[in-house]
Simulated assay, not measured.
Amino acid sequence: MNKQRLLLFVPLAIFVLLGVLFWRGLSLDPNEMPSALLNKPVPVFELPVLPAPENPQGLVSANQDMLKGKVSLLNVWATWCTTCRQEHEFLNTLKAQGILIYGINYKDNAEDAQRWLAELHNPYVFSVVDEEGRLGLNLGVFGAPETYVIDKKGVIRYKHIGDVNQNVWTKVLDPIIKELQTQ
Rank of each mutant, 00 (worst) to 15 (best):
Q114D: 02
V60A: 14
L73E: 09
A110W: 04
V44Y: 14
N109Y: 12
F142Y: 15
L21E: 08
N2R: 12
S35V: 05
N2M: 11
G58D: 03
N31C: 07
G162E: 00
V20I: 14
I150P: 07
C84D: 00
N39W: 13
F22W: 15
F22D: 13
K171Q: 12
M33G: 07
L18C: 12
L94G: 05
T147Q: 02
V10R: 11
K171P: 00
L180E: 10
A118G: 14
V44H: 13
I177R: 05
K95D: 07
L117F: 09
W116P: 11
P51I: 03
P41N: 12
M66V: 05
D130N: 07
P123Y: 07
G58C: 02
P43R: 10
N105T: 09
N109A: 05
Y148F: 11
W77T: 03
P30T: 10
H88A: 01
T93V: 10
H121C: 06
G154N: 10
L6I: 10
T83M: 01
L17K: 07
L17A: 13
V44R: 12
K70P: 15
L173I: 14
A78V: 00
N63Q: 03
Y102W: 03
H88M: 01
D174N: 08
D108A: 03
S127H: 07
P56T: 15
W169K: 02
V129R: 12
D112M: 06
G136F: 07
K3T: 06
F126C: 13
N75T: 06
P53W: 05
A36E: 14
G140E: 13
V128T: 03
D29G: 10
L120I: 04
L91I: 01
E179F: 13
L6C: 09
A96S: 13
L91Q: 00
Q114N: 04
F90W: 03
K152C: 08
K40T: 13
T170A: 14
K152G: 09
G136P: 07
D112C: 05
Q166K: 12
L26K: 11
E46C: 08
E54H: 10
N55Y: 00
L173R: 09
V149F: 03
V49C: 04
N39R: 13
L47W: 08
F15M: 13
S127K: 07
P51T: 05
F45T: 11
Y158H: 15
P53E: 07
L12Q: 06
I161G: 10
W77A: 01
Q166F: 02
D112G: 02
E132L: 11
N167S: 10
I150K: 07
P41R: 09
T82F: 02
W116L: 04
V71W: 12
G154R: 05
L100G: 03
F22L: 14
L12A: 15
V60Y: 02
V16P: 08
V149H: 09
R134P: 00
I99R: 00
R5F: 13
P30W: 09
I177T: 05
D108M: 03
N122H: 04
V168Y: 00
L28C: 05
